[in-house]
Lab assay of single mutants.
Amino acid sequence: LHIEINVNGLRIELHNVSEELAERIREILEKVDDREEARRLAEELIK
């Protein structure tokens, strides 16, 4: 499954994740104000 999410102008592509996991990642990242911090957090979440 390939999912693309957009959060605060940051486009993140997720591969091989469930829709539920992608939604949780999006919800978490929406709470982060700083774009660079959101990017770093996204990288950690999808490892």
Results as ranks from 00 to 15, higher is better:
1 L>N: 13
1 L>A: 12
1 L>I: 14
1 L>W: 07
2 H>D: 10
2 H>E: 06
2 H>R: 09
2 H>S: 11
2 H>K: 09
2 H>F: 06
2 H>P: 07
2 H>T: 15
3 I>E: 03
3 I>R: 03
3 I>S: 04
3 I>K: 04
3 I>Q: 05
3 I>D: 02
3 I>M: 10
3 I>G: 03
3 I>F: 12
4 E>V: 15
4 E>Q: 12
5 I>Q: 01
5 I>M: 07
5 I>C: 03
5 I>Y: 03
5 I>R: 00
5 I>L: 10
6 N>T: 11
6 N>F: 06
6 N>L: 13
6 N>I: 14
6 N>R: 05
7 V>M: 07
7 V>E: 04
7 V>H: 08
7 V>G: 04
7 V>T: 05
7 V>A: 06
7 V>W: 09
7 V>C: 04
8 N>R: 06
8 N>H: 09
8 N>M: 02
8 N>P: 07
8 N>T: 03
8 N>L: 02
8 N>K: 05
9 G>T: 02
9 G>Q: 02
9 G>L: 01
9 G>Y: 01
10 L>F: 11
10 L>P: 01
10 L>N: 11
10 L>G: 03
10 L>V: 15
10 L>E: 08
10 L>T: 13
11 R>T: 15
11 R>I: 15
11 R>W: 12
11 R>F: 13
11 R>H: 15
11 R>V: 15
12 I>K: 00
12 I>F: 12
12 I>G: 00
12 I>A: 01
12 I>Q: 01
12 I>P: 00
12 I>C: 03
13 E>A: 07
13 E>W: 15
13 E>K: 10
13 E>H: 10
13 E>R: 12
13 E>N: 09
13 E>D: 08
14 L>K: 00
14 L>P: 00
14 L>V: 07
14 L>C: 03
14 L>Y: 06
14 L>Q: 00
14 L>N: 00
14 L>D: 00
15 H>Y: 11
15 H>F: 12
15 H>C: 10
15 H>D: 06
15 H>R: 05
15 H>I: 12
15 H>P: 03
15 H>G: 05
16 N>G: 14
16 N>P: 02
16 N>A: 07
17 V>D: 02
17 V>R: 02
17 V>F: 07
17 V>T: 06
17 V>K: 02
18 S>W: 04
18 S>G: 08
18 S>Q: 05
18 S>E: 04
18 S>H: 06
19 E>C: 08
19 E>T: 12
19 E>P: 14
19 E>I: 15
20 E>D: 11
20 E>M: 08
20 E>A: 13
20 E>R: 07
20 E>V: 09
20 E>W: 13
20 E>Q: 10
20 E>G: 08
21 L>G: 02
21 L>D: 07
21 L>Q: 10
21 L>A: 06
21 L>H: 05
21 L>K: 02
21 L>W: 09
21 L>I: 13
22 A>Y: 12
22 A>Q: 05
22 A>E: 03
22 A>V: 15
22 A>C: 03
22 A>K: 04
22 A>T: 04
22 A>F: 10
23 E>V: 12
23 E>W: 15
23 E>F: 15
23 E>D: 13
23 E>N: 14
23 E>C: 06
23 E>S: 11
23 E>M: 14
23 E>R: 14
24 R>M: 12
24 R>C: 04
24 R>I: 08
24 R>Q: 12
24 R>T: 07
24 R>P: 00
24 R>S: 06
25 I>K: 00
25 I>H: 00
25 I>W: 05
25 I>G: 00
26 R>M: 09
26 R>A: 05
26 R>L: 09
27 E>N: 12
27 E>Q: 12
27 E>Y: 12
27 E>W: 12
27 E>R: 13
28 I>V: 09
28 I>S: 04
28 I>W: 05
28 I>E: 04
29 L>A: 03
29 L>H: 01
29 L>Q: 01
30 E>W: 12
30 E>Y: 11
30 E>R: 12
30 E>P: 00
30 E>S: 13
30 E>L: 14
30 E>M: 14
30 E>G: 09
30 E>V: 11
30 E>A: 10
31 K>S: 14
31 K>E: 11
31 K>G: 14
31 K>N: 14
31 K>D: 08
31 K>W: 07
31 K>H: 13
32 V>H: 10
32 V>S: 07
32 V>W: 08
32 V>R: 03
32 V>K: 02
32 V>Q: 07
32 V>F: 11
33 D>S: 14
33 D>I: 15
33 D>M: 15
33 D>W: 13
33 D>H: 15
33 D>F: 13
34 D>L: 04
34 D>E: 04
34 D>I: 04
34 D>N: 11
34 D>A: 04
34 D>W: 04
34 D>C: 02
34 D>S: 08
34 D>F: 04
34 D>V: 04
34 D>P: 03
35 R>N: 11
35 R>P: 15
35 R>E: 13
35 R>K: 14
36 E>F: 07
36 E>S: 08
36 E>W: 07
36 E>I: 09
36 E>M: 08
36 E>Y: 08
37 E>K: 08
37 E>H: 08
37 E>R: 07
37 E>Y: 10
37 E>C: 07
37 E>S: 06
37 E>W: 10
38 A>K: 02
38 A>H: 02
38 A>M: 11
38 A>Y: 08
38 A>V: 10
38 A>R: 04
38 A>T: 04
38 A>W: 10
38 A>I: 09
38 A>Q: 08
39 R>P: 01
39 R>G: 04
39 R>W: 15
39 R>I: 15
39 R>H: 06
39 R>N: 05
39 R>K: 12
40 R>I: 08
40 R>G: 03
40 R>E: 04
40 R>A: 08
40 R>C: 04
40 R>Q: 09
40 R>Y: 05
40 R>K: 11
40 R>W: 06
41 L>D: 01
41 L>W: 07
41 L>I: 13
41 L>M: 12
41 L>N: 02
42 A>C: 03
42 A>K: 01
42 A>G: 03
42 A>H: 01
42 A>E: 01
42 A>W: 09
42 A>I: 15
43 E>W: 14
43 E>I: 13
43 E>H: 10
43 E>G: 05
44 E>H: 08
44 E>Q: 11
44 E>M: 10
44 E>D: 11
45 L>S: 02
45 L>Y: 08
45 L>I: 13
45 L>H: 03
45 L>R: 01
46 I>D: 02
46 I>L: 14
46 I>T: 06
46 I>S: 05
46 I>P: 00
46 I>F: 06
46 I>R: 02
46 I>C: 07
47 K>W: 11
47 K>C: 03
47 K>S: 13
47 K>P: 03
47 K>E: 11
47 K>T: 13
47 K>N: 14
